[in-house]
Amino acid sequence: MSKDLTIKLSKEMEAYLKKKEIETSCSMEKIVEDLINEQVNNKIIFEEGFYYDKQKNALFDKDNKVVEFTKLQNGLFHLLLQKKGEIVDFDTIHKEVWKNKGMSIFTMRNIVKRIRDLTYYGLIINHSNKGYTLGETF
């Protein structure tokens, strides 16, 4: 389904788009469409205003601030993101995030809790005795 949209441009935006139009030999509409598609396709939207920017390789909060993870938190988040829609079992987490080094179930639970504290509870879903998944994305 296609929908027409009218956008009021500032002089700076209009000048930018005209310059791009000349550089690329594309219509202004095509350039705007490509810019919007680039923005939409480069983000994974989570609940509570959180989103992951694929280009910046970072998770942002509702205030557009980067969520600062530790190395282990970052490793777990990215593993779950990579396996989106799959339950990631404890052995896989141990192998991929901890690189088979010492890890207890309590340490892993603590990392999950700290990620939830920095974001929101539903970002990581626990599947009892199976593993974890990322919460809903849009």
Rank of each mutant, 00 (worst) to 15 (best):
G85R: 02
L35I: 10
F50Q: 06
E38W: 05
N129T: 08
V66D: 09
Y51E: 02
E136Y: 09
N74L: 05
N110K: 13
D4S: 14
D34Y: 06
E21S: 14
L72V: 09
L79R: 05
I31V: 06
D4R: 14
F90D: 00
N110D: 13
I124D: 03
D34T: 08
E48Q: 11
S2N: 12
G102C: 02
L81G: 06
K95Y: 12
Q55F: 08
I111W: 01
S104D: 09
I45G: 05
T24W: 06
E86W: 06
N126C: 08
L17V: 01
Y120E: 03
T24L: 15
N100H: 10
E86K: 07
M13G: 04
I87W: 00
E48R: 08
M1E: 12
H78S: 08
K130L: 01
V97G: 01
L76C: 05
D53K: 09
I111V: 15
Y52F: 15
N57W: 01
I31E: 04
V67L: 02
K3C: 09
Y132N: 02
R114Y: 08
I31A: 07
G122M: 12
K11P: 08
F90N: 03
D91W: 09
Y120P: 09
I115F: 03
F138Y: 12
I105P: 05
F60W: 04
I31T: 07
K99H: 12
E86R: 02
L134G: 04
T24M: 13
E21W: 01
G135L: 11
K54M: 06
A58R: 14
K20Q: 15
G49C: 02
K84M: 11
T6P: 00
H127K: 08
W98P: 01
S25G: 13
T107W: 02
E38Y: 11
R116G: 06
H78Y: 14
T107E: 12
R109N: 13
Q39C: 10
K30M: 09
R114D: 14
K95C: 13
R116Q: 14
S25V: 07
L59C: 03
F46C: 02
D4M: 13
N41F: 05
V97T: 03
E14R: 09
F106K: 12
Y132V: 00
D117L: 12
K71V: 14
K3Q: 13
I22H: 01
K130T: 04
D89T: 01
R116F: 07
V66T: 11
